[in-house]
Design a protein around this nucleic acid. Structure first.
Lengths: 185, 185
DNA sequence: GACTACCTGTACCAGGTGGTACATGTACCA
DNA sequence: TGGTACATGTACCACCTGGTACAGGTAGTC
């Protein structure tokens, strides 16, 4: 992957995150300070470009989870993860994530592989995290699915309303319920 | 609203739910058994059509909550709500909901009002439901936001994977945690 | 029959679409 | 010096886009 291409892809991700994915090659290219000819040259086609953008966004998302410091005390892991995920700097990225998600649900070209791993690929790492948190094995699968849903649902709330305080409070409430749940069952 | 228009709108919602919203007026019209001329005639423009579709989908979603039988025992309300929300017949509608959501996040024309109420308009009714469930007032706001996120997150999971059993288990787990939480705090 | 309101088909338009052909520029390496 | 690989600009293409003009059709009312 050449440098010019990397630069264009970064700029495309950034711009699409801020302005939506519904542009023609020409308007997008102009916004990126290049010509539509160059986008075709580097990515082959419009579909090729969008595919790469989707791949890149998913890659960045996953990085947030895998980069977690495993030496952290288990009870802080979830909070650190959440804080990272909701970092202001990532906000546009998260928004784009849901935009692409929507397009993928509609069967947009080049986004099928996006859907394939969007749930399943996250369950295993989350289950591993839950194990460290002391969640009993019989609850881990459902709990992981639930945790993923909570994260996605609250993230969707955050990119919609921008009400960080309220969303954080809801996450805090979830973690409290989760802990109370362990003690009981 | 004339009958022909209602018929077209219904058909449009149905078709877009199944095949995505990224069509030209012509392909959409052909699929609906009419001509793009008719869509313009009845809805004024493409944007007008999409606006009406979004409005209709949101209206149908909200109906699921407001139609709940208020004489039901509180502990069953949540489950009945969830069962209705995840009804097979509504599946396409839920999928379309997330497609439109994504487009709205990207700033698509005619979808701005969709975003306005998509969180806030749900919080009050959910809080009312939580009150009936016996959630103490000081936790109700966060709990409502959390409940909404869980529903949206698991619904997103459902329309992605179609794995009803796993998603139901996660919801069941959430309700369990919720009950355990009340007893403690 | 005449008038009216709603509906629909045909034909067309200007502008935008993704994609291509071809010529050129630039930089590094032999 | 020439060659080669990457990069870029210009001009063009066939096609599709949303939207419009216009001419009817159909049904009910007076």
């Amino acid at each position: 992957m050449t440098e010019a291409r990397v630069r264009l892809l970064d700029a495309a991700v950034e711009h699409i995150a801020r302005n939506g994915a519904e542009h023609s090659l020409r308007t997008l290219a102009t916004a990126l300070g290049t010509s539509h000819r160059m986008l075709i040259y580097h990515f082959g086609s419009k579909e090729g470009l969008l595919t790469e953008v989707a791949r890149e966004v998913e890659r960045r998302q996953r990085t947030v989870l895998t980069d977690l410091d495993p030496t952290l005390p288990p009870d802080k892991l979830a909070r650190v993860f959440w804080r990272r995920l909701t970092d202001e700097a990532l906000r546009h990225n998260e928004k784009l994530f849901f935009q692409l998600y929507g397009q993928a649900l509609g069967g947009a070209p080049g986004t099928a592989e996006f859907l394939d791993g969007v749930i399943d690929d996250w369950l295993a790492p989350v289950e591993a995290l839950l194990e460290r948190l002391g969640v009993p094995e019989r609850h881990r699968a459902a709990q992981a699915r639930l945790g993923l849903a909570v994260a996605r649902g609250l993230l969707l709330d955050l990119v919609t309303t921008g009400d960080r305080e309220a969303v954080d409070a809801a996450m805090e409430r979830f973690l409290t319920l989760q802990n109370a749940g362990f003690l009981q069952t």
